[in-house]
């Protein structure tokens, strides 16, 4: 516990020192592009944390822009995860099926997701469906390919054990294949969650009337640099939170692992 406390202090101490250094540097430079952290924090407070107590101090802008962005990110990611894991586990247990679609999957993953944004734009018009489509298309492939990898690599002795005990199909899939594949699946989920955040921003930069990305673009056009920086910081915080939550979930789900990774 003491060691952990020390580590905690060390980490945040370094972080605080860096913020101070940043403050001093930006003050010295006085560049309009690089406002001081103090200014940025002030902007954050004014924009998002100035609401009434009934809204937990959150301003309307949080509900109009931040929350929709978060819901799009998580919604798209969750849909892609469910579909991706199911598809990946099924494909991973069939060598023949993978022979047919493997190259297509590898190709699909190699496509930079924003390139299909114009297509989604004409198909779904500006709005949430188009953003969800972009996020799902971009995040699906890492989940599928990692699930395939995981499902494929079920240990041969476990395969034979399951066969020797004549496990019924659902018990085999849910009780043996899925847990075996879980560590790989989580690796895929982590990659796709950070991709989901990126794609949320991209889709909002292109086709949205609200959201963090839209606000970012708006701030750029208005040359409101503190607002832009506030958006960047907010996205960083969100990315950090998402990743931390997923890691906590992963740790719980993989608690049985003697040597957890990451």
């Amino acid at each position: 516990m003491n060691a952990r406390l020390k580590q905690f202090l060390q980490r945040w101490g370094v972080f605080a020192a860096l913020v101070v250094a940043w403050e001093l540097a930006t003050r010295a430079a006085a560049s309009p592009f690089f406002p001081t952290p103090k200014t940025i924090l002030g902007t954050i407070r004014d924009r998002w944390l100035s609401g009434p107590a009934s809204q937990l101090l959150l301003s309307d802008e949080v509900f109009d822009d931040v929350l929709p962005s978060i819901l799009r990110t998580l919604g798209g990611w969750a849909l892609a995860s469910v579909v991706g894991v199911a598809l990946g586990v099924a494909l991973g247990r069939s060598r023949v099926a993978m022979d047919y679609v493997g190259p297509l999957l590898a190709f699909a993953r190699a496509i930079p997701p924003p390139t299909l944004v114009p297509v989604f734009l004409v198909l779904f018009k500006i709005g949430t469906p188009m953003q969800l489509a972009t996020i799902i298309f971009g995040t699906l492939w890492p989940v599928v390919l990692n699930s395939v990898d995981g499902a494929r690599a079920v240990d041969s002795v476990k395969v034979e054990t399951a066969r020797a005990f004549r496990l019924p199909r659902h018990q085999w899939l849910l009780g043996v294949v899925l847990p075996s594949a879980l560590p790989k699946i989580f690796a895929g989920l982590r990659v796709s969650l950070s991709l989901a955040l990126i794609l949320m921003v991209i889709s909002e930069l292109v086709g949205a009337t609200n959201g963090i990305g839209y606000q970012l673009l708006y701030a750029q056009r208005q040359f409101e640099l503190p607002a832009m920086w506030a958006g960047i910081v907010l996205l960083g915080v969100l990315g950090y939170l998402f990743n931390t939550l997923l890691l906590a979930g992963e740790r719980r789900a993989l608690a049985w692992q003697p040597a957890g990774r990451g």
Partner: peptide, 25 residues
Amino acid sequence: LAVVFQDYSRSLFPWLSVQRNVEFP
């Protein structure tokens, strides 16, 4: 018919407790 394999570390399911491993089949 039941089989006990040489490689216990691979024939047991690491995500199940001992009790659940025995109950599994």
